[in-house]
Amino acid sequence: MTLLEAKSGRPVRILEIGDAQARAQCIRLGIGEGTVVDAERLRVGPVLLRHHDSEVCLGRELAGRILVEEAPEANLRPGRLESDGRAAAGRERRRWRFGSKHGRR
C-alpha cells in the first residue's frame, strides 16, 4: 500500500520511495527504505512522518508514491535506552501516540 492508504497514526515501514530526489532527501533526514516511522495523515494537509526526534512533512502527491507496510513495532527514538526493559519502551510508545491523538479520526 502507499503511505496515503496507510492507517493514520500507526507505525509503518518504508519500502520504496518512488522519486529519486525525494529518496535522497529522505535518506539525509534519516528516513531510508526499511525505516519504521510513525505516519499521521493530517486533515486537509500533508502526511507527517515522525521518526525519532524529527518530523518530516510530505505532500500528498509524493506520499502516494511511497510504498509502505504496516510495522508492529516502532523504535521511536535513537540511541540505547538507559532503563532497559520492554515495559518502559511500551510506556514510551503510548506517550508518543498520546501526543498525536488529536489528528486521528
Binding site: 535513537p78 535506552l81 538507559e82
Partner: peptide
C-alpha cells in the same frame, strides 16, 4: 547507539 544515551521522556 554507540554515542547516545537516552532516558524516558514525555512530549
Amino acid at each position: 547507539p554507540r554515542v547516545i544515551d537516552r532516558r524516558e521522556h514525555t512530549l
